[in-house]
């Protein structure tokens, strides 16, 4: 198994100084929250771009498809001067995979900052596992094995910083149904 991505930055080397300073880069091409590089009229998006993270101000390479398409859309709108452009909210880990006959979903950050609370539950008989990380009433990350919920809905709960205090117990018992309920109430 291997994870991660390493964009090839070699072709940008040697352009980092002087009046014609080239495209600023680190591990990837450094971009603003509208996907603009340090050089006017040059944009970058997707695996090659290093953009703001949702949980950190440091710029990260978030090499997943949903982010690549979102960044691509933002870059395109920025290039066209689209007034409907919304700034990139920051990248977040998101995935769903099958392995050994099981199904896993992961959304958000697995880091546990100070004051955060980790809730897990595991049912041996069904093999269902759930882990959720909360800070205050807000969800930071949610992980499930054989526990189904809608990753897209969870992602919005995190991005919108929805306060889940009032529904927390119900949410942990049935994240799919309660997530859908919140979606329908909050952004239908």
């Amino acid at each position: 198994m291997a994870t991660g991505i390493k964009p090839n930055m070699a072709y940008l080397e040697g352009q980092v100084s002087g009046p014609d300073k080239g495209v600023e880069h680190d591990r990837g091409i450094l971009v603003s929250d509208t996907m603009q590089t340090s050089v006017a009229n040059v944009w970058a998006a997707g695996d090659c771009a290093q953009a703001k993270g949702f949980f950190t101000e440091a710029r990260v390479i978030n090499s997943i498809l949903p982010d690549a398409t979102e960044q691509g859309r933002i870059a395109g709108m920025a290039m066209a001067g689209d007034p409907g452009l919304k700034k990139y909210p920051g990248g977040m880990s998101l995935n769903t995979y099958h392995f050994f006959g099981r199904h896993a979903i992961s959304v958000g950050s697995s880091a546990v900052p100070e004051g955060a609370e980790v809730v897990t539950r595991f049912d041996e008989a069904s093999g269902r596992y759930l882990k959720a990380i909360f800070l205050g009433g807000r969800l930071l990350g949610i992980y499930g094995v054989n526990e189904f919920f809608d990753a897209g809905v969870m992602c919005q709960l995190i991005l919108r910083r929805v306060d889940l205090s009032a529904v927390r117990e119900r949410f942990l018992a049935n994240p799919m149904a309660v997530g859908r309920e919140l979606m329908s109430k909050l952004w239908r």
């Binding site: 809608d150 897209g152 859908r180 979606m183 952004w187």
Partner: peptide, 18 residues
């Protein structure tokens, strides 16, 4: 069967039929 669409959709409009 990559399920990426279930990440993209914010309305739970496409989901795994287990």
């Amino acid at each position: 069967d990559c399920l990426l669409c279930t990440i993209g959709c914010t309305y739970a409009g496409i989901a795994l039929d287990a």
